[in-house]
């Protein structure tokens, strides 16, 4: 966990500022170290800067000031043509799943392998493997709109896992799901974490954060206001003991 920080962190942000062209300051002086195999909840109100932080990690956005290293690579120096190779090391899921509606479950997952030019003969076994990890055997030929929200998120997770990512970023993965389904998704993320993958999950889900007692990084108005191991959704002072 956060105390085991002797090794080089897998993700590090140092004095990161992010200002959008329209003048909005999304992050101010954010410094954060995440070691390998950590499980981190990123919490905070809407517009606090959680999504911006996630987008910076896959360099969908560039920092205005400061440095971000992911897997030893300085993201501000990473050339555009090397960006796809960084993204193959990072699995991502979102609140809105981002599945392609005209492709089946199998094709949605296979799509991620195909567009990264994986060998076609390894494709089928690999897709079947990740679909069984997320518990979707037998649903390979269904289309996304024939699935429940929880199942759709499982497809998205399977797609993110297909490259054996070292880092798993989840931006509000349970935002559209009912409590029971949310717990199933969390169980999956724990399972992925147990296999050695670092998980960073941005969330609003107070119940899950409070029960899990994992590392919690809280952001408010673009600044980290709290970073504690085995934390809750709110600062300890606010919680009834």
């Amino acid at each position: 966990m956060a105390t085991v920080m002797s090794a080089v962190p897998q993700i590090s942000l140092q004095g990161v500022h992010k200002k959008y062209p329209n003048g909005t300051v999304a992050l101010r002086d954010v410094t954060l170290m995440i070691p390998k195999q950590d499980f981190v909840f990123l919490v905070g109100p809407s517009g606090a800067g959680k999504s911006t932080l996630v987008r910076l990690l896959i360099r969908e956005e560039k920092v205005t000031e400061g440095k971000i290293h992911v897997e030893g690579q300085d993201l501000s120096r990473l050339k555009r043509r090397h960006l796809p190779f960084l993204r193959r090391k990072i699995g991502m899921v979102f609140q809105d799943f981002k599945l392609l509606p005209n492709l089946t479950v199998f094709q949605n997952v296979a799509f991620a392998l195909r567009v990264t030019e994986g060998a076609l003969r390894h494709l089928k076994p690999k897709v079947e493997e990740v679909l069984s990890i997320v518990g979707l055997e037998g649903k390979e030929n269904k289309f996304p709109d024939q699935l429940s929200g929880g199942e759709q998120q499982r497809v998205a997770i399977a797609r993110a896992l297909v490259h054996d990512p070292r880092i798993f970023l989840a931006d509000e993965p349970t935002g559209n799901l009912d409590p029971a389904t949310s717990w199933e998704i969390i169980q999956l993320l724990l399972q992925i974490n147990a296999r050695g993958t670092t998980v960073l999950m941005a969330t609003h889900n107070r119940e899950i954060v409070d029960v899990m007692r994992r590392r919690v990084v809280a952001i408010e108005s673009g600044q980290i206001v709290r970073d504690e191991d085995a934390g809750g959704y709110h600062a300890p002072a606010l919680e009834s003991r």
Binding site: R81, R88, L100, A112, T116, E117, A160
Partner: peptide
């Protein structure tokens, strides 16, 4: 555009897209 977004997200190169 959604397809392109997903392709870029999972690490497709520009030329592949």
């Amino acid at each position: 555009r959604k397809e392109i977004e997903v392709m870029k997200l999972v690490g497709a190169t520009d030329w592949f897209v």
